[in-house]
């Protein structure tokens, strides 16, 4: 029986012809847009994540504290919300680092009468601290310390990246939603056309007392089939674009975002897209059914 119903659904698709093809293509477009933005957003998110690990706030101190004062200060900063770790950098360590950086020009530093570099604290952020609000709060708190001369670093551009990602998500969802509505309407049109083409079959079914399910199921199935076909094509499209453009984009992404590798959608996202397509199509088929119900 199921084989028969699927057969009828396929026959419907065949008969709806170009409209069904349009419905499938629109589903493809909407899911490809959704998946494409998702893909970009995932990678931007990964870059932001990576950067968050590297972001640190430097607190320059007014004067070099004693060993006991240092321990007490580190403990105090460590206890602040948003702080993952604190490292004290003494004046001499700072100078050492500077010399390392200067390399063969280190003699310039040696000729200084006194060490001009201040002692500082390097503050690493945990998850709570790496949010825009968390970082802002922490920077305020660190500035208010009596020992603090100046606070540098922060989340400014990580912040911007996160906002950019959110914008991408919104645009992706927006475009995806508009295309999804178009896809649903086209599936509905295709199904309405099928209903029209099938009116003789449907009349016979009704007259011989076919169960309601047998009448409805092929309509629902052909809608779902259109959606599923659209989803599979969208995924193929994404894979193809990813495979073609990925290698060219990777160096660029590496330079700008510092992301070494691009990642494709996770398997469950791919399955999710296919389910979304199937449901989209089913919904379209069901809508058509509702419009022509006696």
């Amino acid at each position: 029986m199921l084989g028969f119903l699927i057969g009828e659904a396929l026959r419907d698709l065949h008969r709806a012809g170009r409209v069904a093809v349009a419905a499938i293509l629109l589903t493809t477009l909407s899911l490809a847009a959704l998946g494409g933005f998702w893909l970009v957003s995932t990678n931007v998110g990964q870059a932001a994540e990576q950067w968050r690990d590297r972001v640190r706030i430097t607190v320059f101190l007014k004067q070099e504290p004693s060993a006991a004062e240092t321990d007490e200060l580190v403990d105090r900063v460590q206890a602040m919300p948003g702080v993952a770790a604190v490292r004290y950098v003494s004046k001499s360590e700072a100078l050492g680092t500077l010399k390392e950086v200067l390399g063969k020009d280190a003699s310039v530093a040696e000729q200084l009468p006194t060490n001009p570099l201040p002692a500082s604290l390097e503050v690493m952020l945990n998850e709570a601290g790496a949010t825009p609000e968390g970082a802002r709060g922490l920077i305020t708190r660190l500035s208010e310390l009596p020992e603090t001369d100046e606070v540098s670093g922060g989340m400014d551009w990580v912040d911007r990246l996160a906002r950019g990602r959110r914008l991408l998500d919104v645009i992706g969802l927006g475009i995806g939603a508009v295309l999804a509505v178009a896809a649903i309407l086209t599936v509905t049109t295709a199904t309405t056309l099928v209903l029209h083409l099938r009116r003789q079959e449907l009349e016979i079914m009704r007259l011989v007392g076919a169960p309601e399910l047998v009448v409805r199921l092929p309509l629902l199935l052909q809608g779902m089939l259109q959606g599923l076909l659209g989803a599979v094509m969208a995924i193929w499209l994404l894979i193809a674009v990813y495979a073609l453009a990925g290698p060219h984009l990777e160096p660029l992404v590496n330079q700008t975002l510092g992301l070494e590798r691009l990642t494709f959608l996770k398997p469950h996202t791919v399955v999710g897209l296919m389910l979304a397509g199937t449901m989209l199509g089913g919904f379209g088929g069901w809508l058509a059914r509702g419009r022509t119900a006696p």
């Binding site: 029986m1 084989g3 028969f4 079959e201 016979i204 079914m205 011989v208 076919a210 047998v214 009448v215």
Partner: peptide
């Protein structure tokens, strides 16, 4: 056959 099938006659 169509009528038999929609009425669920075994294949």
């Amino acid at each position: 056959a169509f009528v038999l099938r929609v009425l669920g006659t075994p294949r």
